[in-house]
């Protein structure tokens, strides 16, 4: 069998002489992304009464190598929304620089009082992701979209297949296995959101980031956290208007780490049973 695709379906050389392939393209056929290269790990987010908190560490791994330690994986999109990305970092950068930034510029340029809110951006991203997977060239990301929408906190997930779902506590990647069960202890369903304070939510997410750093070998102790809340501001005409406030905490270090649990781990590592 001849393994060069350009030879397939052509007259056999041993029968008809050497085929003149000069008119064919000399390179191999186009290939799409088969796997992510430089990757980010989990994004963790939780709704609370009056807002959403979202966090992601600052690491971009090259395989198992901790290649870049200053990557921001949470980004504000428009006035109401934070998009957190796990998976391929270059695809995340493409999403922001080539799609979302121009989209927001186009939207705000109209200057007509309309803004793309979290649910609008979420819908747009999920359509882009599904479109790309349908071209067999997916953007290799799992996204969390957090924001304020229509008088309520908003949190939803979209992935490289275009799968979409929403929950009051969400996480991507390894965090979907480790962090979500922890978050669901304080937030089992949408009704529970009302009873969670901002302080509780931030503490729960910080705790999750710590657990993830303990157990996720592709994670970092340095991370960013954003808190989206709503505040009432008084306009010039004396009307009270709703404004979305996004508070950033960047380059924060995990506090009060305790590796005591590691001594009890058996089954892998240096020790012999």
């Amino acid at each position: 069998m001849n393994h060069f695709p350009e030879a397939w379906g052509r007259p056999r050389n041993d029968v008809y002489g050497v085929y003149d392939a000069s008119h064919l393209q000399s390179s191999m056929p186009n290939q799409h992304t088969q796997s992510p290269i430089v990757t980010g790990t989990s994004v963790v987010a939780l709704k609370f009464n009056g807002g959403v908190v979202i966090a992601a560490d600052n690491l971009a791994s090259y395989g198992s190598l901790a290649r870049f330690t200053d990557i921001e994986r949470l980004k504000q999109v428009g006035t109401h929304t934070i998009v957190g990305a796990g998976g391929d970092i270059s695809d995340m950068q493409y999403l922001h620089e080539k799609l979302l930034d121009p989209l927001i510029i186009k939207e705000e340029y109209q200057n007509d009082g309309h803004h793309l809110r979290a649910s609008h951006i979420y819908r747009y991203l999920s359509k882009v992701l599904y479109h790309r997977r349908s071209k067999f060239n997916p953007l290799w990301n799992t996204l969390l979209v957090a924001g304020w929408d229509d008088g309520k906190p908003f949190l939803a997930s979209a992935d490289l297949l275009g799968t979409t779902f929403s929950a009051p506590a969400l996480s991507t990647g390894y965090g979907a296995q480790l962090a979500v069960p922890l978050l669901r202890r304080i937030c089992p369903d949408e009704a529970a959101v009302e009873n969670i304070t901002r302080e509780q939510a931030v503490a729960a997410v910080e705790e999750c980031m710590k657990v993830l750093f303990y157990r996720d070998a592709r994670s970092l102790s340095k991370y960013s956290l954003a808190i989206i809340t709503r505040e009432d501001v008084e306009s010039a005409e004396g009307e009270t208007k709703e404004r979305v406030n996004i508070e950033w905490k960047k380059d924060i270090e995990l506090q009060n780490q305790s590796w005591k649990f590691a001594e009890g781990i058996r089954g892998y590592g240096a020790q012999v049973v």
Binding site: Q110, D112, H114, L116, S119, H120, R123, K127
Partner: peptide
Amino acid sequence: RLLYSRPVPISR
């Protein structure tokens, strides 16, 4: 509606 799940703004 399809792309942004938003009813189009009248002025737009």
